[in-house]
Amino acid sequence: MSKRLDVLKTYKIYINGQFVRSESGHYLTLTNKSGEQLANICRSTRKDFRQAMVAARGAQGGWSGKTAYNRGQILYRMAEILEGRRAQFIHELSLEGASAKKAEAEVDAAIDRLVYFAGWCDKYQQIFSSVNPVQSAHFNFSTPEPTGVVSIIAEEKSSLIGLVSMIAPVIAGGNTCVVLAGQRNAMSACSFTEVIHSSDVPSGVINVLTGLKSELISHMSSHMDINAIFYTDSDTDSKKLIQENASLNIKRVVFEETDDWMDERHENPYIILDFQEIKTTWHPVSV
């Protein structure tokens, strides 16, 4: 007669290496297609975003200062930990509505993508650097450097693979980020922060918020300390707003639309280059 009550998880957001609740104390309910409640997620506010931003800025110097090789190791470690928790993610993705087969394929693709970008960490510099011919007695070379702190606004239809495909190239290039997870897939996004937490990623490098895009998009694109914005939805109004806000202090804006994050075109080093600044050095040489 005693039927057990389900313990539904309230997923926390992830700021500066800590799992916290939104300062607002507000929550959203996640339901599956048939309307059953799955979990609660935090409804983050601009103040949560501001805190995350401070953390991301604080972590930027340390992360970009790590050796490229070490960054690669850390990304690879994320893949390892994700592999170890495959079953959990497959379960969560199926709760969110994916078929078992699709869920499995998606988790595998996410792991592979982390490995892919882990490999690029210490290689994109060689590909994108150049030695430039100049007329004076200078050794002139250009190298990529991380842009800084990136706002990542994950789109609604993407799930784990979309999230990983957006975060990996950004951090592989030495940037830090504040991510707003899509509402529908907030569950797997929050679980992914547990993977981040247990895989040597320094605090503040990846911060993940959940909540309503409509409430946060303006702050995530106008904050003067943000250096770049990564956005993949297709709605024109949001894009216009982002571009206008970005013009305040000339942030880098990267739009990328896709129907299928599993597609191979999301595995290429040019996505890393999107979040790099090219620095050119003139070094005097005697003839």
Binding site: R50, S222, H223, M224, D225, L248, N249
Partner: peptide
């Protein structure tokens, strides 16, 4: 301004 600021400026 309503916009969060950066120490850069």
């Amino acid at each position: 301004t309503g916009v969060y600021q950066s120490a850069d400026y």
